[in-house]
């Protein structure tokens, strides 16, 4: 048995950047804002690299794919520099692509690459959908293990542990399968200098949705984007007595 792993990676506003809603209230401001790889995708990539490193000869190929604007190439170069072997950019321009369309595109890529293990982030931090992995599993008819906090390979069987309220839950499945990653699965590595140079020479194929016979259509309409109401500022008290007084006033005690 050998693994052909597919890792989808999304270009999103860097998680450390505070997003600002645009003037037209149609979305968040993207001009002059730093973009990076979605942290959960980064974790998915890291896991695939770890599987390769700890199971000699098991992994045939790690293929990274990004669906997004031309700029998403940067994210793919990062993935290649971290250790992915090959990559595909599905250039959709500035169009926002909903999870179902993403899953349909990914299905085509899975077929093209003949992948048998897909590791992807449980969600992207921009739209927080948490749907793509599940939809892809549905379209492919493959078993899925979501929110992985531990992944173990035993022969052709993979067991995935997920954190649940009050404990953990372990799922087992045979290949092919889909795993979505949770936060505590691993800690992504840094990119090493020589690998940045090497990444420039690794394959990056560019496709359009048309090349894959996919029509992107929107099923959702954004009416308005608004910031949550601001929380009233706190008050400082000078003494314990005053604190108790204030708590009584708001009937907290």
């Amino acid at each position: 048995m050998s693994l052909k792993i597919l890792v989808p990676v999304k270009r999103v506003i860097d998680f450390a950047v505070k997003p600002i809603i645009n003037k037209a209230q149609t979305g968040v401001e993207t001009k002059g804002v730093k973009f990076s790889m979605n942290p959960f995708c980064d974790i998915a990539l890291e896991e695939s690299l770890k599987i390769r490193e700890s199971n000699k000869g098991l992994v045939d190929e790690i293929h990274a794919v990004s669906i997004g604007p031309t700029k998403a190439q940067d994210i793919l170069r990062t993935a290649l520099a971290k250790g992915a072997d090959t990559s595909t950019l599905v250039d959709v321009g500035d169009e926002e692509v909903e999870p179902l369309a993403v899953a349909k595109i990914l299905k085509k890529i899975v077929e093209k690459q003949q992948s048998n293990l897909i590791i992807l982030g449980k969600q992207a931090i921009d739209d927080d959908s948490n749907q793509t992995g599940q939809m892809l599993a549905g379209l492919l008819g493959w078993p899925q293990a979501t929110n992985a906090s531990k992944v173990e390979i035993n022969g052709d069987e993979i067991s995935v542990t997920r954190e649940i309220d009050g404990g953990s839950d372990t799922l087992k499945a045979k290949l092919p399968m889909i795993i979505t990653t949770d936060l505590r699965l691993n800690e992504p590595r840094y990119v090493k200098l020589p690998n940045i140079m090497k990444a420039k020479k690794k394959p990056l194929e560019k496709l359009s949705p048309k090349d894959l016979d996919i029509e992107i259509s929107k099923r959702l309409q954004t009416l308005k984007v608004q910031a949550p109401p601001e929380r009233p500022a706190g008050v400082k008290v000078e003494s314990v007595d005053e604190l108790i007084e204030k708590l009584k006033q708001v009937k907290a005690i």
Binding site: D14, F15, A16, V17, K34, S36, M37, P39, D42, T78, Y190, V191, K192, L193, I196
Partner: peptide, 9 residues
């Protein structure tokens, strides 16, 4: 040897 940060964190 060296590394380059890929994101803000």
């Amino acid at each position: 040897d060296g590394i380059i940060a890929q994101d803000e964190s």
